[in-house]
Design a protein around this nucleic acid. Sequence first.
DNA 1: TTAGCAATAT
DNA 2: CATATTGCTA
Length: 340
Amino acid sequence: MVYYAGNLRFHLAALEDELRKIQVFRRELPICYEVVTQTIEAWKQKLVEKGGVRECNPALLDDEMASDRPLLEEFMPLRDDVRGDDDRRERKNDTDSEEKNKTEWLRSAQLWNPFPDLNSRQDDDGDDDDDSPPVVPEKSSSSAAKATDAIASGSLHPELGRGIGNNASGKPLSNPSGSSSSGYVEGRMACKGVEKNQAGSSHRKQRRCWSPELHRQFLDALQDLGGPHVATPKQIKELMKVDGLTNDEIKSHLQKYRLHTRRSPVAQDDSTTAAPQLVVVGGIWVPQPDFAAASGSVSLPPRNKIYAPVATIRSRRLADVEPPKSPPAISSLAHTIRAA
DNA sequence: TTAGCAATAT
DNA sequence: CATATTGCTA
């Protein structure tokens, strides 16, 4: 009896150890995490029962536990040498920096989700539940960045497509309710063969979408930097502190964003003080925020100083900081007007 | 090396 | 058509 209890405790401890280890990958291995967590819970309960009521019969116990086991073992075969660590060389002496890097890219992984619209989770930028270690501004060495990128694009990766029923703990971590879970899930990670730079023609990256969260960070950075037209990709990247996000990606996003804001400059709500933010440019009325953008095409060359310096601009709410959700079509009007 | 733009791919 | 990636140039 004692043996079983001890055994159970031992396994429990081992499991908890494992849980701590995969904590970092919680987002990427939601099922794994969940399974382990639940198993731990279940076992704890067993332990309690065991302590309380003496009736426990070893065989019975095994049987009962069997219900929890198979699932678990699919993902995590139990070993006795769980703490062996031989196979987990990566985290031998918990190197803090490495840990941080991982969590950081994890954050990014979370943000880079392939379901732009679906993933509107309740919390928002909550940064959530998890006690993710403080993200230190730590300048990520380029090598580190590359490493993480490599990881992100290739290796570890949770097969989270399979619906395992018991996601008891609540929100589906990564895979929003099945709708349209078309092969995008594997998009970034599955990467079978891709990225294997075989024959050096793996070329095109997997297409990754900017999640609302990520975009929000982007916008924040933009705002801090004084607007889309003065912000530079690198600065943005540093400000966003999203690891695994490359300059090129930001550059691209910025490009698109600029084009977008140029086309449909939206005066952003706040109509309370809706003083017409209009200014005359080349004979046409243009919403002020777009002034800078428009100036480009109307020959007001250096648009650098149009925006206030970083510090002062912080509180301002510029239209160009927000993506045009519902374009008022002013610009198109402008075009037609100009044509006429 | 980076920013910006254009071409191209999804 | 919208958006992401790559290529090219300054």
